[in-house]
Nucleic acid binder design. Structure first.
Lengths: 344, 344
DNA sequence: CTGTTAGCGCTTTCAA
DNA sequence: TTGAAAGCGCTAACAG
């Protein structure tokens, strides 16, 4: 452990090795406005390579007053919805020479607020919040204030969800998507529905649910409130929700709409565990079109959101790259009918 | 945009507001060794709250010479294997008051090396590399050197995979796990196998493959080389690999072992698309036991790795927390037999 | 084009 | 205990 105490190579070391001033070394290694004599520059580069120098990003940040960091807040990175978005953000960040810090809120708005504050300490260039929240959340105003303060000091914020907060957002039109899904299902002949809802405090849940009800209503179909089970917005939530639906008696129910795919997947498992066959005894539809929707049997009818693209756009929107008009950019939702909702 | 130019509140502002010196403000806000008069401390805290102060982490880092950052390198964050590991790392980091920066290598060792270098600039406390690599990779030595240089300057490295590099590692015993899987399958009555392999340059692939062959060999079962298809280590790789297996003629093949679950999932889809029923016409087994393995039909026989725990341990190992002896900690692999490999 | 010299925001000696 | 002052590694005026 005696070799443990070395300190990293500094720019100063490089300058000394190259026999130039600190300033020249700095200018040679970064794309400074000032140009540097080729011979010097090469010597600096050689010295840097020799010493295996890596610029201290923190020091650069304090000196420049700006970082190269993007903060991404997700509910849960293990959820395929968020990990796909994260992949898109990371790819775009990479293209822009930025580095991504990710933290998980666990869908807790208190934690989300805490994280936003903590992450502000990084003075990131951009802060992206994925996952919608409740407009009536008691912390709503404080979160807004925090984010506004961040913007006031030069940071950029972008959201992925409904436009529940006054910031640039990649707008997922959950409501319209769900409406179209409902209409497609009615078109397939379905009339008797039930729904597996997540917590109503989540904006996306409300939008998908009301959108779905709207779509049914347009065709005179009613989904009574007691056929809507509110449960966790997760795979296990879907499983448990379906169990309670089964326990209460599926009755005439022809199709169960789960407000997201992971819930739908859980619901299918619950059906099977109860001896029922999804797509045969009861049809299932979800939302998001995660990869698994295509791989399970029966393949899941869903509404496609181009998740990775959404992530990329969220960063571009914040950066002002891409064709963003500055406000919010809508992302189309596409209904994909698969075997889980056969024609009746 | 005129309100855009404000600069963040600094410690200096807080000190002035509280009417104390910079030093006192600093000491009040952080757990400094020196103690501070209660009255002063309160005034500082109040001022900080009033001004909504957040310490500049970069500045803190340059001053202290150490950060609060953990870097995690994964192949692909959208892959459930890695996103689950990431979830574990993030949780553990949160507990330790650390922040996680994630980057994706895309399984490209050149990119991995570049990223390690770039990330070194952050002077992270810990660098975690998930996903194994080839021992014979031409960049192997340079990666090792880079990582060693990082450790020499006080950073900690931990790996998740086989122990292909001389650093602390959370050791996934892929070989033993695959051997046990093979033996279980032979125990179920299977004799004629084929395999879907990822690129042999990936350590985990080799280990799983050779382990599997070993397990078969112990029972006198041979898996001829021409029944091993090398393809991408992804869902689509599995799909294509299975297609070529089908094209070449499945013949007597009773069971196809895919070296990871996402490949197995792709393989199942390929089977179905070819009019065959997985688990009936051909049995399938995978490795990793991702969530989807439990949700697909037939449920996938696999080898369980406690991914989230693995992520948590990787950080603890690097931090010296937990019961790590310092070297590497083995994580048990558990064979889970499910419907995709019925008794024959 | 180069080097000197102030900073950046924060921590941490060092005297008082 | 407190404050003044000297850094941390780097950048960006500012003279030369």
């Amino acid at each position: 452990m005696s070799s443990d105490g070395d300190s990293p190579v500094t720019l100063h070391d490089v300058a000394r090795e190259a026999g130039v001033s600190l300033a020249t070394a700095s200018r040679s290694l970064n794309g400074s406005a000032r140009t540097v004599n080729e011979a010097y520059k090469e010597r600096v580069l050689a010295a840097a390579a020799l010493l295996n120098y890596t610029p201290n990003l923190s020091a650069q940040a304090t000196a420049k007053g700006s970082t190269t960091t993007v903060v991404l807040l997700v509910s849960d990175i293990a959820d395929p919805y968020f990990s796909s978005i994260a992949a898109g953000v990371m790819r775009a960040a990479d293209d822009a020479g930025l580095v991504v810090t990710i933290a998980a809120t666990g869908r807790d708005s208190g934690r989300e607020l805490t994280l936003v504050r903590a992450m502000r300490g990084q003075r990131p260039r951009v802060m992206i919040l994925a996952g919608s929240r409740a407009t009536d959340d008691p912390l709503h105003d404080r979160l807004t204030a925090e984010l506004q303060a961040f913007e006031k000091t030069g940071g950029r914020v972008s959201l992925i969800s409904g436009n529940d907060l006054p910031f640039a957002t990649v707008l997922l039109d959950n409501r319209a998507g769900a409406t179209r899904l409902a209409e497609s299902l009615v078109g397939l002949g379905y009339r008797r529905f039930a729904a597996l809802s997540g917590p109503r405090s989540i904006g996306a849940v409300i939008d998908r649910l009301t959108g779905f009800l709207d779509g049914l209503a347009r065709h005179g179909v009613i989904l009574p409130d007691e056929r809507i089970v509110e449960t966790d917005f997760t795979r296990d939530g879907g499983y448990l929700g379906m169990q309670s639906l089964i326990a209460a008696g599926l009755g005439e129910t022809e199709l169960v709409f789960a407000v997201n795919d992971v819930m739908a997947v859980g619901a299918m498992s619950a059906l099977r565990d109860a001896g029922l066959v999804p797509g045969v005894d009861v049809a299932i539809a979800g939302y998001d079109d995660i990869q698994t929707a295509r791989d399970i049997i029966p393949a899941l009818t869903s509404v496609r959101i181009p998740l990775e693209e959404v992530g990329r756009r969220a960063l571009e929107l914040a950066l002002g790259t891409g064709e963003s008009e500055g406000g919010s950019i809508p992302v189309p939702a596409e209904v994909i009918v698969r075997a889980s909702t056969p024609h009746v």
